[in-house]
């Protein structure tokens, strides 16, 4: 029995490892390609490790376009993604709490409306939304890229959080209420600590999605010096002229760093399982 377990363990781990390679191979390809001279990338596409290593792609890519360096794009993206994420998480948690814990009039309709709003492709909402923002004088600033998110505009997060809050036993709320906690205090002291894994997940998603979003950036940011990374990355290639894939890969790798760092820092909180200790009570 024990021996079989051990073989099973080994097989399982080999499988996980092999699978990890499959998962990550394309990324490694991109990473190594970014160190190949740009004109050899496709000629040597079948070969992972570069024959000649070069950092030229990074130097070229970092220069950006017409005097606006790639660093500016990264800073812009950080400003947008960090503030929008903070706003999304705080507001969505509140709204999710409202949906999960209170029986108010019109809740079902609003909840349905929220779900429906996710089913209409962004492209058809773009023009009316644009007119709105223009009316408010928000165009050509980061406001449309940040402020709506501070009001839980993405139903996904509201639904995600309300779902997780729904999974927290109500007995805890009741107990706290008896202890004299207000609803606000219940939210801050009981619910929030218990939903840390969900908050962490949400933060990772939100940051990543804001980081990748170029559709709204396209509409609302005109000046090149205000472009976010997602937009800038698309500027390396053009179907009509030769594209600098080397620089594009290099900068694509650089632009992955913030998301990876965020993931590494935050995924720690997925392990600690704070919720378990809370639930025992």
């Amino acid at each position: 029995m024990k021996k079989r377990n051990k073989t099973g363990f080994v097989i399982k781990n080999i499988f996980i490892f092999a699978f990890a390679i499959v998962m990550i191979y394309p990324l490694l390809w991109m990473l190594f390609s970014s160190f190949k001279p740009t004109n050899t990338i496709f000629a040597t596409a079948g070969q992972l490790i570069p024959t000649t290593w070069t950092t030229e792609n990074y130097i070229n890519g970092w220069k950006g376009f017409g005097g606006v360096g790639f660093g500016t794009f990264i800073t812009n993206s950080l400003i947008i993604a960090l503030s929008a994420t903070l706003g999304t998480i705080v507001s969505s948690a509140l709204v999710g709490y409202g949906f999960a814990r209170f029986e108010f009039k019109g809740k079902r309709i609003l909840f349905t409306a929220m779900l429906l709003s996710m089913m209409l492709p962004a492209q058809v909402l773009m023009i009316p939304q644009y007119l709105w923002y223009k009316q408010l004088g928000w165009v050509n600033s980061y406001i449309p890229l940040i402020v709506p998110y501070c009001f839980a505009i993405q139903g996904f997060f509201v639904y995600l959080f309300s779902n997780f809050i729904g999974g927290i036993p109500k007995d805890l709320d009741e107990a706290a209420k008896i202890d004299g906690c207000s609803y606000w205090q219940i939210f801050v002291r009981i619910i929030l600590p218990l939903m840390v894994p969900a908050l962490v997940t949400g933060t990772i998603f939100s940051f990543m999605w804001r980081w990748d979003d170029f559709l709204s950036a396209l509409m609302y940011v005109n000046k090149s010096a205000m472009y976010p990374v997602s937009l800038a990355l698309k500027l390396f290639s053009d179907p009509g002229t030769s594209s600098d894939y080397g620089a594009m890969f290099a900068m694509a790798c650089v632009s992955l760093i913030p998301s990876v760092v965020l993931f590494l820092t935050f995924q720690r909180y997925l392990v600690e399982g704070i919720s378990t200790s809370g639930l025992k009570g």
Partner: peptide
Amino acid sequence: TQTTTTGAAATT
């Protein structure tokens, strides 16, 4: 949230 976020937006 409103007050906080508007403030944040203004800063950004």
